[in-house]
Write a protein that binds this DNA or RNA. Structure first.
Lengths: 262, 262
DNA sequence: AGATATTTGTTCGTATGTATT
DNA sequence: TAATACATACGAACAAATATC
């Protein structure tokens, strides 16, 4: 369980240090978390209601509510009003996970170069990984996505949509990876780039030549994935990323230090 | 700002949708976040006290406290009691970020193979990145870390400490990378492995031969880093990871589905 | 070191809002 | 529509923590 009190000592050995949670609220939140794992509750399962929790922990309403609020923010429960309401176990959404991770990176300076240093190695990896599971429906989704930016945009709005769809292409690919860790990392990088676009109005002046070259890469990628050609998939994606990086670095922008829009 | 209400529509275009936050608590939390960015508050800066917030939002104490609790869990503020107390702006610690990300991965099945698929490409990357900034003090830290597992352990406790220190070696390397994103990812993977150790009591029977080979890799790595030899650093780390993966996969364990210990 | 003032932490009682039946 | 069951919000009081004198 995540005690999560930010007591930063490195924890030598296996003996459990008692962080001695100062606040009753945190104690209760931890206790509830504990019962969640102990009873291996699944999403949708209901926790005891406020009044029951009040009795169980002999705490007041406000204290119990703060504890539940903590769990809610952590994406572990969802609270519903009305009859049959209460706190229900929930799995944290990817969106929220990214939002929280974004808060962590808020203070750090993350450059486009940093993002692409990771994308260059991870996108090829995830493409190969996705290749093993993707089906005809998946290929169809990819082609439909390409169709969005297959042509010159008519207005600023469409140009913006096209830039987002270009990232969505990679997002769809990552969806088909069975490596949840890898998939998340890659999609998070894409999210950072989307944010960058929103913030700094990058992607304003797409160079048609480079853009067309990117689409070619993606079509070749689909072909290679259909052929289940590991090496080719990885190579094409690596080249694609190299080009994209070059394109982005020319803009010399820095990812804004801001909270991520949820 | 992170509205973070998990309203999952893809947000077409740039126009801001009003999520119409239902709960007063969430409204207030968002409002406070907003002022934090608008005034570009730095860590250590103080927010208005409870009573002031109560007045500002004409909300009750409990409501304001729930809002602050939300910000606290997100790692954005820290609350202190006593005179001059209140909510102070804080940067989310790496520890908390990992804990929250761990909650997201709780439901997913993450295997050792998944972790090493990432480590194999990221550890070489981060080593090269760190090489550019690491100084003599850093090398000293690395050598001191190696000294912990340089010899046969005397008891179970020391053996456990040694396993943790082996991961700490890589953690120290990652510390010196200026790519915050890369550094975090790599250290998070190490954290998962540490957790794995705690959970499944893996690392019980270290094979002395393989262990010694790992130490050789690390000594060679330090030498190559001192020489500022990009390629050699990357190659050594890649080989090191390949061996480590082989070693771990033999155990055929799966990362436990559990919340991460903070 | 001890007393005191300040501010968060917790409690209880009550009233309101909301979803289900 | 009305009754019910639950979360949500309010307000006043008290307890605990902590900085200052």
């Amino acid at each position: 369980m995540s005690t999560d009190t930010d007591n930063s000592e490195p924890r030598s050995g296996a003996e459990k240090r008692r962080p001695k949670l100062r606040k009753r609220t945190d104690e209760i939140a931890e206790a509830i978390k504990l019962t969640m794992v102990q009873h291996s509750l699944e999403p949708g399962d209901r926790l005891p209601q406020e009044k029951d929790l009040m009795a169980q922990f002999s705490a007041s309403k406000g204290t119990v509510r703060e504890a539940l609020k903590s769990l809610e923010v952590q994406g572990l429960v969802r609270i519903r009003t009305g009859p049959g309401g209460g706190a229900f176990v929930e799995r944290m959404s990817e969106r929220r996970a990214m939002s929280l991770l974004g808060n962590y990176l808020f203070a750090k300076k993350v450059t486009i170069a940093d993002i692409y240093a990771l994308r260059k190695v991870l996108e090829p990896l995830v493409a190969v990984s996705a290749m093993r599971l993707i089906d005809e429906a998946g290929f169809k989704r990819l082609e439909e996505t390409i169709a969005i930016y297959d042509h010159e945009p008519h207005d600023a709005q469409e140009r913006w949509d096209q830039r987002m769809a270009e990232l969505d292409f990679h997002s769809v690919v990552a969806e088909y990876s069975e490596n949840a860790l890898l998939s998340f990392q890659v999609r998070f990088l894409q999210r950072l780039l989307k944010d960058l676009a929103v913030c700094h109005d990058i992607y304003q002046q797409p160079q048609p030549v480079l853009r067309q070259r990117g689409i070619e890469f993606q079509r070749e990628l689909i072909k290679a994935m259909r052929a289940r050609d590991d090496k080719k998939v990885a190579d094409i994606m690596a080249d694609h990323m190299a080009l994209a990086e070059q394109q982005m670095l020319a803009l010399e922008a820095e990812v804004a230090n801001r909270f991520i829009e949820a």
